[in-house]
Design a protein around this nucleic acid. Structure first.
Lengths: 341, 341
DNA sequence: GATTTTTCCCAAAGCGCTTTGATGAAATGT
DNA sequence: ACATTTCATCAAAGCGCTTTGGGAAAAATC
C-alpha cells in the first residue's frame, strides 16, 4: 500500500494525505483523524527511500568504526551504541554503521556528505588532533564527538567526561592515603582520553609534591593481558609502586591476577583504582575486594550524544553543544593506606 | 553533480551514462571508458536514495539488537560486526543497525520487510525455537542465522559452530585426564549455543560412564562476576569438581580469581577450559597459566555470515546455506591430570 | 452585501536514479 | 542491392514520496 492507493482509498489527494500524516497545519482536524485512522488500519508505511529522495534528508546517523586494523575492536562500542540506539529509534533515526572494508575511512565520510546517506555522524574514540574534525567541518556534515581532540574545545560539538578531573581525584585519593609512589596503567596516548587521564594523574602528584616518574606510567591497548603484564612488572620493580591507577576495567582482571600471584593483598599491600565505563560484563562491585573506581556510564553518554546530534540536525541554528560530565569517584575496598615497604 | 549533469557534460543521455556506469552490455567499450573516466574525474557519486527508490533494492543489511533489557549488551557483537562489516563494504552494502528503543522488535522486522529498508537481515544470538525465524520466513525477508534454533536445522539459512562437538571434545579431554567430576559454567540456556554446549558436555560424560549431576551445571549471564561466583561455589562444595568447563572467556577471569583465592593451582588442583570466541581484549594465551580452550573466531564467522547472506540476496534461487564449523581444541597449561582429593 | 482573509484541499512538478520501448546507423546475410 | 540483424544510443515513463502554487468554499472584516 502506497500513498497513492491510500489517497484513492480515502478520496483525497496525495498532497492532503501526505500533509495529514506529517502533521502540517493545512488540513482540518477532522480529515487528519480520518487519515490517521485509515492509515493505521490498513498498515500504511511510507517508503523510506522515496521519503529520503523527496526530502533530501536521510533520517540516519553514521557511525564509522576506524578501519585501523592495529587497534582492537572495542567492546565499549556495543555499549555506547546501545545507549545511542535507544534515542535514535525513539526519534525515527536509523543508524548506518560502517566497519572496515578496503575503502579508506576518509572516503566513507566524503561519500556520506556528498550523497546525503546520513544526516550526521558521531565520532568515537577521538585522537589528539584528530583529522576527522577538520574533514567533517570542511564537508559541512553535522557531527558530534564523544570525547575531545585535545588541542581545542571550540569549533566542534562534543560530549566528554572529565577524564582529567576523574584521574586527579583518583590519584588524590591515593596520595591522601599516604601513597608516594603511584603507577598509571594507561591506554595508548594517541587517544585524547588517555592523555587527559595522564594529566589528571600528574596534577594530583604535583599537588602532593611528588615527582613524576615516566617509568611507572605505561601505555598499551586495553586488554586483560596487558593489565597483567604491566601490573606484574610495576609491582616487582625496585622501589615498587604501592598503588596503581588503571585506565580501564579491561586491565583490571589481569592486574588482580598479578597481585595474587605476587602474594599481595589488594587494599592492603597494594591499592588499585580503575576507570569504570559501566561495561555490563565487568562489574567493579562484583570483584573481591570490591574495586574503587571512577565511574561514568558509557551507555548514558551514548544516549546523550545521540540526543545532542539529533538536536543539531533538527535545528541547524542552535549553538554547538559542549558537555563535560563529571565523573564519580566511588571508594570501595581496593584502596587503603599506603603500606610500609 | 548528478546523473543529468554528468550526462550533459558528456553529451550523452542519462540512459547511456547510467548503463555505462552499471556495466550493462548495451554500450560501447569506448564510451564506457569515457564515461568512467569523466565520472571519476568529476567525482560523481550516484545518490543512493534515488538508486534505492528506482531499483527497489536497498543494498543494506539489517542487524537488530534484541531489545530485551534483561540481557546484557553483548561485547561479542562488536567483533562479529567487525568481521561482517568488512565484507559488507567490499560488496557495497551498508549496515543498518537497530538497537533498542520502544518500538517492539517484531515491528522493526515488519517495517524492514514492508518498506524494503534492508535487503536482508542477520539474526544473532538465536534462542531455542526462536520466533524470529517464523516471522522472517512469513515476511519473506532474506535472512541468515548465526547459530541455530535448536529444534530444526532445515528451512532457514544458518552458519553455526559445532558447539556440541566442541564441548564434547573439551569434556573428553578432561575425562581422559582422569577427571570424574566436571562442572559446567554455562550461559543461559534460552540460547541455543548454550543448550548445544551442555549436550556436548553430557555426551562426553556419558561416554566416559560418568553420571550427570545438575548441581554442578550452572546457567548465568556471561560476566566476570558470575564466573567468580560460580567457580567459587563449585570449588568449595563437598565432593568438589576437579575440573570446570566455561562457556565463555568472560567467565574466566572471575574463575581464575576464585581459584587463586581458594589456594588452588590451576592445571594441577583444578583444570579449566573455556570457549574462546577470540575477543581481542581477552587472550587465552596471555593468561597464566595459559588457558586450554575450544576456539572459534566470532569475527571470522561474521565475515562468512555476511558473505552467505549477500550471496542469497544476489541469487535468490540458490540453495539455503548451512555451514557447521568445527572448533579447535587448543590444549595449553590450564588442564592437567585429575588430582587426588 | 461586498471584500478580504482564512481554511482546506488539489494538480502537478520535482527529487535522481533505472528501465522500457523506440530509433537511426552500422554490420551482416543473401 | 535489399532485407535483416546487431549495435549504440535516446526520450520518456516510473519508483513513492514532498512541496509549490493555486483555487474554491467558508469565515471574518468592514
Amino acid at each position: 500500500m502506497n500513498l497513492k492507493e491510500l489517497a484513492q482509498h480515502l478520496n483525497l489527494s496525495q498532497t492532503t494525505v501526505s500533509r495529514a500524516l506529517n502533521g502540517y497545519p493545512e488540513v482540518s482536524e477532522q480529515t487528519r483523524r480520518r487519515v490517521d485512522e485509515v492509515a493505521r488500519r490498513v498498515g500504511y508505511q511510507p517508503n523510506p527511500h522515496a521519503m529520503r529522495l523527496a526530502t533530501g534528508r536521510s533520517h540516519a546517523i553514521g557511525h564509522v568504526l576506524p578501519s585501523d586494523k592495529m587497534l582492537l575492536i572495542d567492546p565499549h562500542f556495543s555499549d555506547f551504541i546501545a545507549g545511542a540506539g535507544d534515542v535514535y529509534s525513539e526519534n525515527g533515526f536509523d543508524v548506518m554503521l560502517h566497519a572496515g572494508g578496503s575503502e579508506a575511512e576518509e572516503s566513507v565520510y566524503r561519500r556520506y556528505a556528498q550523497s546525503g546517506a546520513v544526516d550526521g555522524v558521531v565520532i568515537m574514540g577521538p585522537r589528539l588532533n584528530d583529522w576527522r574534525i577538520d574533514l567533517l567541518t570542511e564537508l559541512a556534515l553535522p557531527f558530534i564527538v564523544h570525547g575531545r581532540v585535545g588541542q581545542r574545545d571550540e569549533g566542534y560539538a562534543w560530549l566528554d567526561i572529565d577524564n582529567r578531573g576523574a584521574f586527579r581525584a583518583a590519584t588524590k585519593l591515593l596520595t591522601d592515603l599516604g601513597h608516594r609512589r603511584i603507577g598509571l596503567v594507561n591506554a595508548m596516548e594517541i587517544f585524547t582520553f588517555a592523555a587527559h587521564r595522564r594529566q589528571g594523574y600528574e596534577d594530583a602528584l604535583i599537588a602532593a609534591g611528588l615527582k613524576l616518574d615516566p617509568a611507572i606510567v605505561t601505555n598499551d591497548p586495553m586488554t586483560e593481558e596487558n593489565g597483567y603484564r604491566q601490573a606484574k612488572r610495576l609491582l616487582t620493580m625496585g622501589e615498587r609502586p604501592t598503588a596503581l591507577v588503571f585506565s580501564s576495567m579491561l586491565f583490571i582482571s589481569g592486574a588482580i591476577r598479578a597481585a595474587h600471584e605476587l602474594g599481595l593483598t589488594i587494599g592492603r599491600d597494594v591499592s588499585l583504582i580503575a576507570h569504570d565505563d559501566g561495561l555490563p560484563f565487568l562489574n567493579a562491585e562484583g570483584l573481591v575486594p570490591t574495586l574503587t573506581t571512577v565511574r561514568s556510564s558509557i551507555r548514558a553518554a551514548g544516549s546523550r550524544v545521540a540526543e545532542l546530534l539529533i538536536g543539531m540536525i533538527n535545528d541547524t541554528e542552535s549553538a554547538q553543544p559542549h558537555e563535560l560530565w563529571k565523573v564519580d569517584l566511588i571508594v570501595r575496598d581496593s584502596t587503603g593506606p599506603a603500606p610500609r615497604l
